Simulated assay, not measured.
Amino acid sequence: MRDKLRIFVADDHPIFRSGLRSYLDAQPDMEVVGEASDGADAVQRVLDLRPDVAVVDVSMPGMSGARATEQLRRDCPAVKVLALSAHEDRGYVQQLLAAGAAGYVVKRAAAEELARAIRVVAAGKTYLDPDIAGPLVASRVRSPAGGPVAAAELSDREAEVLKQIARGHAVKQIAANLDLGVRTVETYKARGMEKLGLKTRAEVVRYALQQGWLAGG
């Protein structure tokens, strides 16, 4: 078993990026294997290096953090993307989670919090900065009739599939995780979304936040 988590850092501020690299390299269970200053370069280097976790700034030149995250989740889903941003608006958070990020940390957070977030997402869980998790959970998804949607409407399998969708896992990865066929996972996904009146992955993420599925990893 590898002793250290392999981390990639993408941020367009050299001083911040250098400080982040120094801090993470000092952790006994982490090593920074690469870095980039713009989104397009970050995507290419992550595809080449295949780190365990890519820490990606939301606002970068060339390609936004959201677009970079979408491409990385599509082309190398095994890499966990942790969004890092100065923005605390829930719209940014929902956008990155919908793009496939496994977590979201604000830049004003303590360095120890970032290290914890990296460990959480590397373990296959979802991490939300404590300062933004509360407002997000309070943002409720509603059914077409106007009332809140109930988790009890879902079967256990449908709920589990939607949880993993919300955490950014691809259908093939979910099938492997649950020891199911890809078509079976697609069926559970479609049935669950139909029952809840959800049309997009972003709505699944918001529903998961409402239900507390993503809170605390």
Rank of each mutant, 00 (worst) to 15 (best):
G34I: 04
D129C: 10
A42F: 01
E35S: 11
R67D: 15
D57M: 01
A150P: 08
E70T: 10
C76N: 07
A102W: 07
L96V: 07
A111E: 09
P148L: 11
R140E: 14
S59W: 05
I132Y: 00
R50Y: 01
V149C: 10
D38V: 06
G147C: 00
R67H: 11
P77E: 03
K107V: 06
A36F: 03
E112D: 15
V120F: 01
A66G: 00
D38Y: 01
S59P: 01
M60K: 05
A66Y: 07
G34R: 00
T126C: 15
A42W: 02
L49Y: 07
A86M: 13
L96Q: 08
D89Q: 14
A110L: 12
R45E: 10
A150N: 12
I132Q: 07
M60E: 08
P28M: 07
D57I: 05
T126S: 11
G65D: 02
P135A: 08
S143Q: 14
A26Y: 01
I118Y: 08
G39F: 00
V32E: 03
V120I: 15
G62K: 02
Q95T: 13
A122S: 11
D48N: 08
S139G: 07
G147E: 14
G146E: 06
P130E: 04
Y104W: 02
V137W: 00
A150I: 05
A68H: 02
Q71T: 13
P61M: 04
A123W: 00
A111P: 06
V53N: 10
A36Q: 04
A145L: 10
L97Q: 00
G147H: 11
S143E: 12
R67T: 10
S37M: 12
Y23L: 06
R21A: 09
Y92K: 09
L72G: 06
R119T: 09
R73N: 11
E31G: 04
L49R: 14
A150K: 09
V43P: 13
S64P: 06
V32M: 07
L82H: 01
L128G: 00
S143G: 14
S143F: 15
L136I: 13
G39N: 02
V105W: 04
A86C: 09
A102T: 12
S64W: 02
D57N: 04
V55R: 03
A110M: 12
D38R: 07
D57A: 03
A150Y: 04
V46D: 10
A117C: 12
S85P: 05
E88Y: 02
V93D: 03
G124D: 00
V43A: 05
A40S: 14
Q44F: 01
V79G: 02
V56F: 11
Q44H: 11
P144V: 02
A86T: 11
Y23I: 10
D48Y: 03
S85T: 12
A145Y: 06
K125N: 09
G147Q: 14
S37N: 12
E113N: 13
P61V: 08
P28G: 09
A54H: 12
G34M: 05
V81N: 11
A99Q: 05
A98P: 09
D131F: 02
K107P: 11
A117V: 13
A102C: 15
R74M: 13
Q71L: 15
Y104C: 06
A98M: 01
D89T: 09
G91H: 14
R73Y: 02
A111V: 08
V55I: 15
A99C: 06
I118D: 13
V56I: 15
T69H: 02
